[in-house]
Amino acid sequence: MPPGGPGAAPYDEERGSPYDEELGVDERTQVLVAGGGPAGATAATLLARQGFDVTLLERDRFPRYHIGESLLPSLLPVLDVMGAREAVERHGFTRKTGAFYGWSGQEWQLRFDTSDRPAAYSFQVIRSEFDHLLLEHARAQGVRVREETQVRRVGFDGYRTTSATWTSRYGRAGQTHFRCLVDASGRAGVLAARQLRTRRFHDVFRNVAAWGYCAAPRPCRTHRRARSASSPCPSTDESGPSPSTTAPSASAW
């Protein structure tokens, strides 16, 4: 039985065992990235493609659930620079050609196939799959990825960050020394929220939302008619603009 007891992730020849740390407890890297979500994976990939030695520490084991599925066309040039565009296209996410809004009795449409946009479409993604794809792409570009490894504290030399202490799910602890740090830990905020306490919240965003998902909703006829004929998106029932509507105490996307 692997460390962690029943239900622990099995050994994977390509990704390695989650408890098999091939690096020592006191390691060095040029750039340390804290967090393996889209921001961390993107930063790590771009740096690795420029020849830097990059280590990425991610608290969770991918794939993992995350909300935030609707992406914009500005994503595609970033995927091109990362070298990840082909993998994302090949995965088969639903293409999104715009948006249709029905708010408070008013309706309007936003189209992506205009000359001022970098692409005529984007994607509706399943974040667990999309984030996993980007993290695996970072690994393929030479990033040293450590999943189920959480940064606990960042060490300073004066005003400069120099090291990070971390622990793994299986009880291993260590320290990584670096020249540069990318804090992509998101809401957890290794530096801003937990350590330096410099994070500030805008009053407008001090709110809470409960959310859920609709199972296999039927395409709205208005949105189907609104699809641009010049869109490169295949004519399927799933593709087209994303609808967004509101009710007195809720909204749907």
Results as ranks from 00 to 15, higher is better:
residue 1 M to D: 10
residue 1 M to C: 11
residue 2 P to H: 06
residue 9 A to Y: 04
residue 15 R to Q: 12
residue 16 G to V: 05
residue 16 G to E: 06
residue 18 P to A: 08
residue 18 P to E: 07
residue 19 Y to G: 10
residue 25 V to I: 08
residue 26 D to A: 15
residue 28 R to M: 07
residue 29 T to N: 08
residue 30 Q to A: 10
residue 31 V to S: 14
residue 32 L to G: 03
residue 34 A to C: 15
residue 36 G to T: 01
residue 41 A to W: 03
residue 43 A to T: 01
residue 43 A to Y: 02
residue 43 A to F: 00
residue 45 T to H: 01
residue 46 L to G: 05
residue 53 D to C: 06
residue 69 E to A: 08
residue 70 S to C: 08
residue 71 L to R: 04
residue 72 L to K: 00
residue 75 L to I: 10
residue 77 P to G: 07
residue 79 L to F: 12
residue 80 D to G: 13
residue 83 G to A: 11
residue 88 V to R: 02
residue 88 V to L: 11
residue 90 R to A: 15
residue 93 F to K: 09
residue 94 T to F: 01
residue 96 K to D: 02
residue 96 K to G: 01
residue 97 T to A: 03
residue 100 F to L: 09
residue 101 Y to W: 15
residue 102 G to W: 09
residue 105 G to Y: 00
residue 107 E to G: 10
residue 107 E to D: 14
residue 107 E to Y: 11
residue 109 Q to H: 10
residue 110 L to F: 07
residue 117 R to Y: 07
residue 117 R to Q: 13
residue 118 P to F: 04
residue 118 P to T: 05
residue 119 A to K: 04
residue 120 A to P: 15
residue 120 A to L: 11
residue 121 Y to N: 11
residue 123 F to D: 08
residue 124 Q to I: 01
residue 125 V to C: 08
residue 127 R to P: 14
residue 129 E to S: 09
residue 131 D to R: 10
residue 132 H to A: 13
residue 132 H to Q: 11
residue 134 L to G: 03
residue 134 L to V: 01
residue 139 R to D: 04
residue 140 A to W: 03
residue 141 Q to L: 09
residue 142 G to M: 07
residue 145 V to R: 00
residue 147 E to H: 06
residue 150 Q to G: 13
residue 152 R to L: 15
residue 153 R to L: 07
residue 153 R to A: 11
residue 155 G to C: 07
residue 155 G to D: 14
residue 155 G to I: 04
residue 155 G to A: 09
residue 157 D to K: 09
residue 158 G to K: 11
residue 159 Y to S: 14
residue 160 R to H: 10
residue 163 S to C: 13
residue 163 S to E: 14
residue 165 T to K: 05
residue 166 W to S: 04
residue 167 T to M: 11
residue 167 T to F: 02
residue 168 S to R: 09
residue 169 R to V: 01
residue 171 G to A: 04
residue 172 R to K: 12
residue 172 R to F: 07
residue 173 A to P: 06
residue 174 G to V: 03
residue 174 G to T: 06
residue 176 T to R: 08
residue 176 T to D: 12
residue 177 H to D: 15
residue 178 F to G: 12
residue 180 C to E: 00
residue 181 L to P: 06
residue 181 L to F: 02
residue 182 V to T: 01
residue 184 A to Q: 03
residue 184 A to G: 06
residue 186 G to Y: 05
residue 188 A to K: 07
residue 189 G to M: 11
residue 192 A to N: 04
residue 194 R to N: 12
residue 194 R to C: 10
residue 197 R to L: 15
residue 199 R to P: 07
residue 200 R to E: 13
residue 201 F to P: 05
residue 208 V to S: 14
residue 211 W to V: 10
residue 213 Y to V: 02
residue 213 Y to I: 00
residue 217 P to A: 09
residue 218 R to W: 00
residue 218 R to C: 03
residue 221 R to M: 08
residue 221 R to L: 06
residue 223 H to I: 01
residue 225 R to E: 09
residue 225 R to M: 07
residue 229 A to D: 09
residue 230 S to H: 13
residue 231 S to V: 04
residue 233 C to S: 15
residue 236 T to L: 08
residue 237 D to V: 12
residue 238 E to P: 01
residue 239 S to R: 05
residue 240 G to H: 03
residue 240 G to S: 05
residue 241 P to L: 00
residue 241 P to W: 00
residue 243 P to K: 01
residue 244 S to T: 11
residue 245 T to W: 12
residue 251 S to M: 11
residue 251 S to G: 15
residue 253 W to S: 11
